[in-house]
């Protein structure tokens, strides 16, 4: 779930408000988006992928983590290379190569030879 909107990094472009498919954000008084409906977050990571400032962090859990400050610790997340990591992997952003160009998947697994892969 979305856990962090970094006020320091945010450029107030409103993209996350616009692109979130479940309408989780609202514009805050200072222009920085606020997480208004966290329960509606479906942990799809698309706000992160679309954030030009790498200001967002979506924790992998499908429930809020109020007791775990680590998922909102900007410094820690940045040091671990997690802020903006999805955007980098799919190759979005100036000067990057689209990840789709390199997306050559594996021949699917030992079990795949017995039954077709269906999902």
């Amino acid at each position: 779930m979305i856990e962090l909107v970094s006020a320091e990094r945010c450029v107030a472009c409103d993209r996350c408000i616009r692109v979130c498919p479940t309408d989780v954000f609202e514009r805050g008084a200072d222009g920085v988006p606020v997480i208004a409906r966290q329960d509606d977050c479906q942990t799809c990571f698309q706000c992160e992928a679309n954030c030009p400032a790498d200001a967002l962090f979506v924790a992998p859990y499908t429930h809020p983590q109020p007791q775990d400050p680590a998922v909102r610790d900007e410094r820690r997340l940045a040091d671990a290379g997690l802020l903006g990591s999805y955007r980098a992997q799919i190759g979005w952003g100036r000067g990057r190569t689209p990840g789709a160009l390199r997306a050559i998947g594996p021949a699917l697994g030992p079990a795949a030879q017995a039954t077709p892969i269906t999902s």
Partner: peptide
């Protein structure tokens, strides 16, 4: 553990979102 080294690399390139969860955990 049934993926060999080549399959592991290919999986990451094919579906980076599959690894988001693991990398963050």
């Amino acid at each position: 553990d049934r993926a060999d080294e080549a399959a592991r690399r290919a999986m990451r390139l094919a579906q980076p979102n599959f690894f988001l969860t693991f990398d963050r955990l």
